[in-house]
Design a binder for these strands. Structure first.
Length: 424
RNA sequence: GGAGAAUUGGCAGAGUGGUCGAAUGCACUGGUCUUGAAAACCAGCGUACCGCAAGGUACCGGGGGUUCGAAUCCCUCAUUCUCCGCCA
């Protein structure tokens, strides 16, 4: 959520910034500001009435104590008008407040100045590309065929037990998952991130805090009996650790990591991209999260990008980094870098990581602040990134490291596995 | 799942209808004293919103209610603890 003060003072630049998303905010912001003005006016009235009520109540108390029952009762009689006035004002103020919040929830984050305008993924900028495209002297197989050839993943079994998008990993396939999780967590820990094991179900306040609600309501699995949501990413429980927190200035930087399964309904995405591991309802991911002083979020973002690069290089995967254009940047993010690895057999790039800075967009909702040098509370910046999401990494590893005699496992993973090659 | 108790400021802990945003202690910050430190003493010490300011309003686990007035009474939800039951 954007800060209301920002809308008051920088209305034009916010509208201008949101144009990069092809989002016309002028109407919403005008509505917000006019409601905000009414809200302040009504609120001032309400507080005046409340103040009068408080005074009279105090006096009644004193009168009773002095035994002046008669006068006290007279004073009581005065209050009924004020009270109904107070109730009316209260309703108005609450209604306005609700309207404002609802409108504010519709506004996405303002893109960072580096972000280019654009409508969709075709406008994303490739800012870096590394690694070699693998050379095959045979026709490489797509990962779903490799997975079945070497009995690593059984997609049909997942369908039987749960439904499409819930694969069953078996044998070396299951071990590979475990190895990747350990590898990613160890790398993150080495980089200073503190490992967490988080709840996989979260309450409504948490889903609101990181911005999944109300924006992506339909994308989360929901358990109505207990009013809980299955997490779509570890970002939700990990960032919400700091909901309603005021940090001392000395606490920065906060770096946390965690492995969790992620659950996404992916409502509406059927068809070509759902084959194999490309798009799942349940998948594993290691997430890195940072809580930063606003002055340090530039630096933090650079560090996170370098971290993800390092992982992909150690896995020997060709990758490229995209800076998403305004239209493709997620609702809550101010800037996002996507990492994609090249899938040799599918002949396309697969997104394996998304590293984003949210500036104060999440911390506004989270009420995540720190005491600044002037001992005032100020909103923190939050950032997060996948490091990394497993399925497409597995897909790329299988496809890019395949040989006619099997699949070579990159050296970085050897210490986590009791095999170095997947073969018949 | 059943029965009971509890939830107050960073922590501990008083307060059961009136001048309570809330005693007291600890912690913390500043000052006096000291060569320095400790101790002692003095002062300060929650969050948010409205307001140029003075000031005002709201907040005692969350929500709702009773009342002129609620930390205090009622309802409800959540959490914690104890006992019983069940169980990885």
């Amino acid at each position: 959520m954007l800060e209301i003060q920002r809308l008051r003072s920088e209305k034009e630049s916010v509208i201008e910034g949101l144009k990069k998303r092809h989002f016309d905010a002028s109407e919403i912001i005008s509505a917000v500001l006019s409601k905000d003005e009414q809200w302040r006016a009504e609120k001032t009235k309400l507080e005046e009435v409340a103040s009068k009520m408080n005074q009279i109540s105090k006096q009644i108390g004193i009168l009773f104590k002095e035994g002046k029952v008669q006068e006290a009762n007279e004073a009581k009689a005065q209050t009924s008008v004020l009270k109904s006035e107070e109730n009316t004002l209260k309703e108005k103020v609450d209604a306005l407040q609700n309207d404002i919040t609802e409108l504010m929830y519709q506004l996405p984050n303002v893109p960072n100045e580096k972000v280019k305008p654009g409508k969709s993924e075709v406008d994303n900028e490739t800012i870096e590309q590394r690694g070699e495209e693998p050379n095959f002297n045979f026709t490489p197989l797509p990962h779903w065929e490799l997975a079945s050839k070497y009995n690593l993943i059984d997609f049909e079994l997942g369908v039987k037990i749960t439904g499409a998008g819930f694969p069953m990993y078996i044998g070396k396939g299951a071990k590979l998952q475990r190895a990747l999780i350990s590898f990613f967590l160890d790398e993150a820990t080495d980089a200073g991130y503190v490992e967490h094991q988080a709840p996989l179900l979260v309450n409504e306040a948490s889903a609101l805090g990181t911005g999944q609600l109300p924006d992506k309501e339909g994308q989360m699995y929901y358990m109505p009996v207990d009013d809980l949501y299955l997490i779509p990413t570890a970002e939700v429980p990990l960032t919400n650790i700091y909901r309603d927190v005021i940090l001392p200035n000395s606490e920065f930087s906060i770096k946390i990591t965690g492995y969790t399964p992620c659950f996404r309904r992916e409502a509406g995405s059927y068809g070509k991209d759902v084959r194999g591991l490309n798009r799942l309802h349940q998948f594993d991911k290691v997430e890195i999260v940072r809580i930063e002083h606003p002055n340090n979020s530039d630096q933090a973002l650079v560090e996170m990008i370098d971290h993800v690069k390092g992982l992909l290089e150690k896995l020997g995967l060709q990758y490229r980094i995209l800076r998403l254009c305004g239209g493709d940047t997620g609702f809550a993010a101010a800037m996002t870098y996507d990492f994609e690895v090249y899938s040799a057999a599918q002949n396309k790039w697969l997104e394996v990581s998304s590293v984003s800075r949210f500036d104060t967009f999440q911390s506004t909702r989270l009420k995540l602040r720190f005491k600044n040098e002037d001992k005032k509370s100020q909103l923190c910046h939050t950032l997060n990134g996948s490091a990394l999401a497993l399925p497409r990494i597995v897909a790329a590893l299988l496809e890019n490291h395949q040989t006619e005699s099997g699949i070579e496992i990159p050296k970085a993973l050897h210490k986590y596995l009791n095999y170095t090659k997947i073969e018949d």
